[in-house]
Design a protein around this nucleic acid. Structure first.
Lengths: 236, 236
DNA sequence: CGCCATAATATTGCATACGATTTCACCTGT
DNA sequence: ACAGGTGAAATCGTATGCAATATTATGGCG
């Protein structure tokens, strides 16, 4: 467990340590420092963050609601291992919700929203030009953050929370089933979407985001692994 | 607190008492035995269900994630009091998601799904013909269950969970802002939707559900209460 | 040599204990 | 009579302890 937090929580004035631990764990999961299936022992996590199991349990329960962690009774909590079916459902949900976000965002987007988008796009470009696993992770995170920015711009707190969950789960799915690592073509698509938002061009924006989600999903290997694949596994 | 559970949990062999308590509380909230703003004290709830505060806290945390309960640090948990803005967002979310559910459900409904729908419709009719506050509550619940059935028929577990949250929150919103109590016209609309599902008629089904959601929302009083209303309040 | 039964160990589920914070009642002073 | 302050009671946040369950190690047996 490399959470780069060897000592007690330094920050912040904001109480609620469970939330803080949840955020740390979530970050670690979505940028794959904690891989699917990793056990998150209450005692161990508590020791790392210098808190009792009580507050760790609260954090793990939150992550379990978000679908990032699977809790088994009397066995503990593990980083989720989404099945292919779950992966499909994540993307089906995104295909349903994100065009709606684009429509809402087109209506109410402000100049400061747009500049936040541009800022995010520059960050993406920065990570793209770098090399190394750390930049890779940052790139994945930045790519997800773009969609979260879209959700925020839509101005619906409920849908925003749904999207937070979907984006986080997507990153798990990509970790498990991603083929080429990162779909680097995503950046230009994000740019085109921002352009459409700025023009308040709903149909174009929706078409772009649908294609974009399609590209992300197309980069996954979601072939069902039953029947024939079993033989393959035995053959090896 | 009238949760009609004066003694220890009778059922069931199924472990996880926190989940059971969450379900009980949620039922009480969505059928308005617990009104918005009601305090849910950990100790009190624990005494009712004969469990420690630990497990009550877990249940309340779950409800707080679902938006049915608002938790304030060092103050406790209260049945949520959605604002008008939140109410609008709940219905905006439903307008986005439910047509997608109809489309998915049309593709994959089975005959047993249809009969489940018909069964549900009969239940609704039964409550409609009765009088009294208890039948009223059952009617509200049954009306929500119809939409949950739709979500289940769509076959996407993630969207199903989102809908569970949205339906539950809708019932809170109706409790707060409902005008005529119950939109009794809903029943015939539900029937028409089931007919469309059976014919696998996506466009009609989507149009029907959009109108249906519109009718539910139209029965609310979501006029914003700022500016002028302040004067009114002072005038009284 | 491998396999199953059994004991030792670790981990979770839950209750309880205690300090911290809030709430409420009461009281005093103006 | 009322505003504001003070103290008691209630409630929450968190740590810890114990029983129950799962996991791992050990040893006997086929």
């Amino acid at each position: 467990m490399n959470l780069q937090t060897p000592f007690a929580l330094p920050d912040s004035e904001a109480d609620d340590r469970a939330q803080l631990i949840r955020d740390r764990l979530r970050d670690a999961i979505v940028d794959r420092r904690l891989g699917p299936g990793t056990k998150l022992s209450e005692g161990e996590v508590g020791a790392i963050f210098n808190v009792s199991r009580t507050v760790v349990r609260a954090a793990l329960q939150m992550l379990s609601f978000e679908g990032l962690v699977r809790s088994e009774r009397n066995r503990g909590a593990f980083v989720a291992n989404p099945t292919i079916e779950e992966a499909r459902q994540v993307f089906a949900s995104r295909r349903l919700i994100e065009p709606g976000l684009v429509a809402a965002a087109c209506e109410r987007v402000t100049v400061s929203d747009i500049s936040a988008f541009r800022n995010q796009l520059e960050k993406e470009a920065g990570f793209l030009s770098q090399r190394g696993p750390s930049a890779r992770r940052s790139e994945i995170k930045a790519s997800g953050d773009f969609h979260l920015l879209l959700a925020a711009a839509a101005g619906n707190a409920i849908l925003q929370r749904f999207m937070e969950e979907l984006v986080a789960r997507s990153s798990l799915v990509i970790a498990l089933y991603g083929r080429s690592g990162v779909s680097s073509c995503g950046h230009s698509e994000h740019m085109a979407i921002v352009d459409a938002l700025e023009r308040r061009d709903v149909p174009t924006g929706q078409e772009l985001i649908i294609h974009h989600i399609g590209h992300i999903e197309a980069d996954l290997d979601l072939r069902t692994t039953d029947g024939l694949a079993l033989k393959d596994a035995l053959g090896i």
